[in-house]
Simulated assay, not measured.
Amino acid sequence: MNTAWMETADLAAGRGALGAGLVVAGVVVVALLIGMFVLGSRRVRKSEVHRPGPEEQPRMPEGGPVRETRERREPDEVPRSDERLLPHELNGHGTTGSRTSASQERPRWDENSSGAFGSGGPGGR
């Protein structure tokens, strides 16, 4: 009976050693994964374009800040044709074909209209 107890103790010790070995292997795998992540992120940081320093920042023009010009433009009419028009056949691209409008007043919504699409109302017309 004494030998059976010893065999059971040896078997339990073997299972404990196997369990401890699996835990150690798991810790090693996790440490390797963390190490590879750290090395990979360092490599990515080195390959990125560097951030500009204060001396490389854009400077304000000598004449001061540039202001935008707001003006209303007259629409350019699309020519009527029975055939399909290609983009290069249309008049001026962008603002080259349109003229400054005589009235520079901005269009406003009607007082009785919400101006929202899908509002359920009859609209401004």
Results as ranks from 00 to 15, higher is better:
residue 9 A to V: 11
residue 59 R to Y: 05
residue 21 G to I: 03
residue 68 E to T: 15
residue 13 A to I: 02
residue 54 P to M: 11
residue 53 G to L: 12
residue 87 P to R: 04
residue 51 R to S: 11
residue 26 G to N: 04
residue 27 V to I: 14
residue 43 R to T: 13
residue 57 Q to T: 08
residue 57 Q to M: 15
residue 24 V to P: 00
residue 57 Q to G: 04
residue 61 P to I: 01
residue 99 R to Q: 10
residue 101 S to H: 15
residue 116 A to D: 05
residue 71 E to G: 05
residue 45 R to K: 13
residue 52 P to H: 07
residue 125 R to D: 11
residue 54 P to D: 09
residue 64 G to H: 02
residue 13 A to D: 04
residue 89 E to A: 06
residue 102 A to E: 15
residue 112 N to R: 05
residue 60 M to S: 09
residue 35 G to W: 12
residue 110 D to T: 06
residue 94 G to D: 03
residue 4 A to M: 06
residue 25 A to Y: 00
residue 39 L to N: 11
residue 74 E to S: 12
residue 91 N to H: 08
residue 20 A to V: 04
residue 52 P to Q: 06
residue 17 A to E: 15
residue 119 S to N: 07
residue 109 W to C: 07
residue 42 R to W: 10
residue 113 S to D: 07
residue 112 N to C: 01
residue 70 R to M: 15
residue 98 S to N: 08
residue 12 A to S: 13
residue 75 P to R: 11
residue 75 P to A: 05
residue 48 E to D: 11
residue 76 D to V: 14
residue 67 R to P: 03
residue 92 G to N: 01
residue 17 A to G: 14
residue 2 N to D: 11
residue 117 F to K: 04
residue 7 E to P: 02
residue 39 L to R: 12
residue 4 A to D: 09
residue 35 G to M: 10
residue 93 H to E: 12
residue 86 L to I: 04
residue 125 R to K: 11
residue 86 L to M: 08
residue 96 T to W: 00
